[in-house]
């Protein structure tokens, strides 16, 4: 009877798994999730950012994206902080000073414009989400501070999306101001293809192919979403190194303690300990100053 039960249970499991895998394959229509494969330097447990790529990526963001997309959680000081693009402090200061920041109110109660400082947040292209949507045909260009974390697929998705603009297949209907992108969920995107060969000019002489530019700006966005990635990886490595040593020591100690359970040595030792303790206690008890 037990053997029968085993067989019945096994058959049911197998049929469930088969059904599910079949159902899953039926359900994965819609967006293409086979993102383009790229080697990201920040992936893996030792991953770090490519500084030059981050600096170029910042330039791409500023030249291409910043007209519509904000990165409101970034501050200009972040540009010179460790683990980021690591611009020199003077460079970061100069970058900040290029922007006009509304400050105030002053003594007269009025807001005024002053050049940006390191402590300022990145200036937003639009005062609020509604203004941003109104200026962009009703589609709000999302804030990109945490975009790399806010999209399934992260860096690969962003990179693929930038590279995924295509002519719509014949017979595919697109409204005005809507574009076809093979990686966008639903394939319809309101952002025109932002990046093309040579759209920016790199000071360091890196070639300005579409792929290179997309890669740089994606790297920048990953950093923007996760500015402590390098510190995290570094600390993680140290923590693991430490934990493995401690785990080994604790395990060996545990084995030793357990092996002594009830053994003669332990008993003797414990007796000696108790005895010694009693002696010490008696001695202490005799001292009238110790306790009142």
């Amino acid at each position: 009877m037990l053997v029968h039960l085993n067989r019945i249970i096994l058959t049911i499991f197998i049929s469930i798994i088969t059904t599910l895998s079949f159902a899953d394959s039926q359900h994965s229509h819609g967006a293409n999730t086979n993102y383009l494969k790229t080697d990201w330097s920040f992936e893996g447990i030792f991953g770090t950012f490519d500084r030059a790529s981050l600096q170029r990526g910042y330039q791409v963001y500023q030249d291409v994206c910043a007209g519509c997309h904000s990165v409101q959680h970034l501050s200009y000081r972040n540009l010179s902080e460790k683990g980021g693009p690591e611009f020199l402090p003077e460079e970061a200061k100069a970058i900040a000073a290029q922007f006009e920041v509304t400050d105030g109110p002053n003594e007269d109660g009025e807001m005024f414009i002053r050049p940006g400082r390191l402590s300022d947040k990145f200036v937003k292209p639009f005062p609020n989400a509604k203004a941003a949507a109104a200026a962009n045909g009703g589609a709000y260009p999302p804030d990109m501070s945490v975009l790399a974390k806010a999209r399934k697929g992260g860096a690969d998705y962003i990179y693929s999306l930038l590279m995924g603009y295509e002519e719509a297949p014949t017979g595919y209907e697109l409204d005005d101001g809507v574009y076809y992108n093979k990686y966008m969920p639903g394939n319809k995107i309101k952002m025109a293809e932002p990046i093309s060969d040579g759209i920016v000019e790199y000071a360091d002489g890196t070639e300005t192919t579409k792929a290179q530019i997309s890669k740089d700006v994606t790297t920048f966005l990953v950093w923007a979403a996760d500015p402590h990635l390098e510190a995290r990886h570094k600390m993680g490595f140290k923590v693991f190194f430490y934990l493995i040593i401690l785990l080994t020591l604790v395990y060996l100690s545990k084995q030793k303690v357990w092996s002594q359970f009830g053994s003669k040595e332990e008993k003797e030792e414990e007796e000696a300990f108790d005895k010694a303790e009693r002696v010490v206690t008696e001695y202490e008890g005799e001292d009238p100053k110790t306790f009142k």
């Binding site: 060996l252 030792e269 000696a272 010694a276």
Partner: peptide, 17 residues
Amino acid sequence: MSSEIKPKRRDFLFTAT
């Protein structure tokens, strides 16, 4: 109070841990 006794009860492994 038991500082004289403890070293006897703890060998290198325990100290290291």
